[in-house]
Design a protein around this nucleic acid. Structure first.
Lengths: 215, 215
DNA sequence: GTTTGCTTACTGGCGAGAAAGTAAGCTGGT
DNA sequence: ACCAGCTTACTTTCTCGCCAGTAAGCAAAC
């Protein structure tokens, strides 16, 4: 069996092309229907073949799902011309730019939102993927905070870990609301405000919520 | 047909009891498996009846799901002894207290997380529920911001609407990460930090993210 | 206070329709 | 001639919803 440079077992360019078509279709289907509710036949129909044809390429539904998740990341990196995700303060701007870019691809946003929540259910095949993903992202954001704090001469990172999780959280949460009410607010704009608030909340913690009671 | 004080068509206390058992079981099942993946037989088994018995009480799977969503709200209000959700600055503290309370009931958190994301999929029976819910909650938080701004003598930033969505967003997003990594951070603690940051971001907007670049 | 009549709360079984996966065969490119 | 890339056909397994039947409870009549 021939293998290409990436170690994949398929060679023909037409095949590679077809696999990508299937992956794109799967993103759309799983985004619109969820990964349990979306069927192989749905995916197959979109690329003009039968469900058995999809199985021929991906072996099983679960393998297809995992490849979809991997594909999303790869497509992410490809879109942003930079190979490496920036570190330090630039990371926060990068996150905002990602949110702005996402406004142009609701399909992928929806797939990601649906699949990430689905992953917390019993024995979900994507669970490991999302656990790793959040762990990695939180560390990257935490590192960026450390650099930023040093740069700004702020000694205290006690809230840094919490803030890192919070930044990823707002982005996810805003995506959900944006999918439900696309007209009510802009994803990029809202993400910029929220991320800035949290970053400033680390650098210059303001008054507590308690202190706003009955004055 | 006899009706009780609430206008419900079922009278027998044993029936009311059974219906509640079924609802609790459904919260758990739909939380663990999602509403499409969780089956009526799963729910029925937990209360020791058959799936036809569940249908007898709720008519259809869809009706059961909608009653589960309504039940969650009702249980929410019941748990917090206050009948009325507070307004003004107190609301923000109320949200933090809710997050702290949620730390004790991961089952409900999971059901809510899974179902809310599932709701963005095609023709999901819970979609209207979640659209209404977010619209209502955003307005309540927005109103609280208006009161707070007046109280603090801040002349009404136009970030208020965005901030309201952001607060709900962090809460949701933190729940997702917390479900995946319950040991990494505390839900209440993180929510308190994030909400405070966003509230302060409205009252005292700090430097922009841009301004942190290469100094 | 017991019988009679109706309702409630189920059970068990069935049918229709998906859906995932398998096996075997056809076909066109190299 | 061979093999990748399919299709068609089939099996298995689920799940929802329906239906008929039953046991038990309530309620009014006698």
């Amino acid at each position: 069996m021939a293998k290409d440079a990436d170690g994949n077992t398929t060679v023909r360019p037409a095949t590679r092309e077809k696999r990508e078509q299937i992956l794109k279709a799967a993103v759309e289907i799983f985004g619109n229907k969820g990964s349990t509710n979306g069927t192989l036949a749905d995916v197959a129909e979109q690329v003009g073949i039968t469900h058995a044809g999809v199985l021929h390429h991906f072996g099983s539904k679960q393998k297809l799902l995992l490849e979809v998740l991997a594909y999303r990341d790869q497509a992410d990196v490809a879109e942003l011309a930079e190979k490496h995700i920036p570190g330090g303060p630039e990371l926060f701007l990068h996150l905002v730019r990602t949110a702005i870019a996402n406004e142009r691809r609701p399909g992928i946003v929806q797939a990601y939102t649906v699949l990430s929540s689905e992953s917390v259910t019993d024995n979900h095949p994507g669970r490991d993927y999302f656990e790793d993903r959040y762990t990695t992202l939180r560390r990257e954001v935490t590192d960026a905070f450390h650099l930023l704090c040093a740069q700004e001469g702020v000694t205290e990172p006690d809230t840094v870990a919490t803030a890192a999780a919070s930044i990823l959280a707002v982005m996810d949460g805003l995506q959900l609301q944006w999918l439900l009410h696309r007209d009510v607010f802009g994803l990029g704009e809202a993400s910029e405000f929220a991320i800035r608030s949290i970053v400033n909340g680390v650098l210059h913690p303001g008054p507590t919520l308690e202190s706003y009671r009955h004055d």
